[in-house]
Amino acid sequence: MPISTPASAESVAPVARKRRRNFLRPGGYPALPIAILMITLIIPALFSQWLAPYGPEATNLRARLQPPVFFGGDWSHPFGTDRLGRDILSRTMHGAWYALSISVVGIFVGVVIGSSLGLIAGYFRGWWDTIIMRLVDISLALPAMLLALALAALSGPSFQSVIIVVAFVLWAYFARQVRAEVLGLRERDFVARAVVAGSSHLAILRRHILPNVVNTIVVLATLQVGIVITLEASLSFLGIGIPRPIPTWGLMVADGRQLLTSAWWVSFFPGLAILLTVLSVNLFGDWLREKIDPKSRRV
């Protein structure tokens, strides 16, 4: 279970200066990851209602487990169909919306909670810090999968329960990162000057601390997308993800896993969508970090 990410320590490490431009970065921005993201995630997420050839839940029992085009199938179902004859292309496209919304909402909730607490802990220190950091420890010591299972047993799996699990996995991590940054900023001259000048805590937090950590938060948040999407898939595997027949990629892969040898396409295309999305989000996140992380700029 992805509790942590490489970014956690890497964000502290300085990153390269003059990167040679390679095929990924023709114009200074990562063209390929962005293009892939647009194709696999953003465009289908926003426009699948109009672009997808079928409804995501439209079954056709006469066309069950049709192979994809070029593998014995035809253009009526370019990615083939699943056990209920649902069009995999359409489902994968609709799945993008759920991937995007789970990521955005889940990360947003986790980030807001985690960063706020991290800000408080790092800025006020003392008891605040002790209590919040103990909460962080407690949260890390609780296996998130078990929380997810308990939640699912409690109220049935739902979009909300998935969001809660995502937020639970992320908040402690953000609290830690933001606290560490704020602890450093707190010692800087401009904060000291603001304190001397008599600014209120709120004003200092708003004017001096937050703007300096927001970049880190954005970069780290970007890098969580992959973790959230694979987490959702694992939840679906355990039967505690977003309930069927909603076409999340995770559920599609989990449902198709048994047919891996007989109807590989059922899990392959949503799996590929996960792979490409996570890959490109991570590449994009790396690029973003180099671009706006204050620490990398310092180098």
Binding site: I227, T230, R257
Partner: peptide
């Protein structure tokens, strides 16, 4: 990156 981009149960299977 691939390791991070694949659901672990899928990789396992």
């Amino acid at each position: 990156l691939i390791g991070q981009s694949m659901p672990s149960f899928w990789l396992g299977i």
